[in-house]
Design a binder for these strands. Structure first.
Lengths: 146, 146
DNA sequence: ATTATAACTGCGAATAATTTGCATTTGCAA
DNA sequence: TTGCAAATGCAAATTATTCGCAGTTATAAT
């Protein structure tokens, strides 16, 4: 449970209060290998017999995002935002356009590119998001012939 | 007006009807150097004395996206989608986190990376989105000292 | 040209995600 | 232990986007 210690420390440092909601939500996000929508988190909490109002889930995610413990993203172009625990050290995602499965990609190909671009544009670049889209092996097989 | 010819041809090939709305909306998107929200497009049309219902703007954008004339994206994590004219040959964006200005980046650093990743993951990768975030020169200057 | 028809549009109402106001509760510093 | 700002629950509001339906238009076939 290394992360648990880690996240309670990060919570403390952030100045946010250490509440049941915050702990429970962080716990779920950390254990998830996929970014989750607010409502998904809400139901995941319910399964653990933890009742937290959906507004509170939203508000909690917002505070956690403010303090950089959580990141808010929109990977697929649908109408809801996803949230993920902000591991220090970033990740990228490979998204299946068919079944919507998301695979985490651990290496980042953008090493020196940001610096080059900073020189060209005079932007101070602080981060990036890279999403790759395609079809996973299973979906390719299943749809063989279409 | 090279694009105008181009987009009317693409419209024809797509099988979509060549209507006032479609032409007007494509025209606005092509002339915009930034991705636009549906409502922004709606108001831009209004300024040109072109009254098109907001629902129609949405529906038009949807059809155009279906036919790959337009791309729908969410660059900034707010609650609305942005739309851009789909130039053949993709682009990336550099977004200022302060003033929200968006700069188009024409070269793509991901050349051979997708192939490597395909071998590793057995995904069939069909595309990607890369957004870079930072602070533009003006905002850096303006906020000097904070 | 005329016409038939599917595609398109306007309008208002519905939907769904997210936010907000307010009264109550809780974590935590003093 | 207490005081108080911060956090929470609940219901209602807000906002982007979609949908149903009735009327209109672009286009292909005559």
């Amino acid at each position: 449970m290394r992360e648990q210690i880690e996240y309670e420390e990060r919570l403390k440092k952030s100045g946010l209060k250490n509440t049941k909601s915050r702990r429970a939500i962080l716990d779920i996000l950390i254990r998830s290998n996929q970014p989750m929508a607010a409502e998904q988190i809400f139901f995941a909490l319910k399964e653990k017999q933890i009742d937290i109002n959906l507004s509170t889930v939203y508000r909690t995610l917002e505070s956690l995002e403010d303090k950089d413990l959580v990141t808010k993203i929109s990977i697929i172009d649908d109408d809801r935002m996803l949230f993920e625990y902000n591991q220090l050290g970033h990740r990228h995602y490979l998204v299946c356009l068919d079944c919507k499965k998301i695979i985490t990609v651990h290496n980042c190909p953008l090493g020196s590119y940001e610096k080059t671009l900073e020189n060209e544009t005079h932007f101070n670049i602080v981060g990036h998001k890279l999403y790759l889209y395609g079809y996973c092996e299973e979906c390719q097989k299943r749809n063989n012939g279409n």
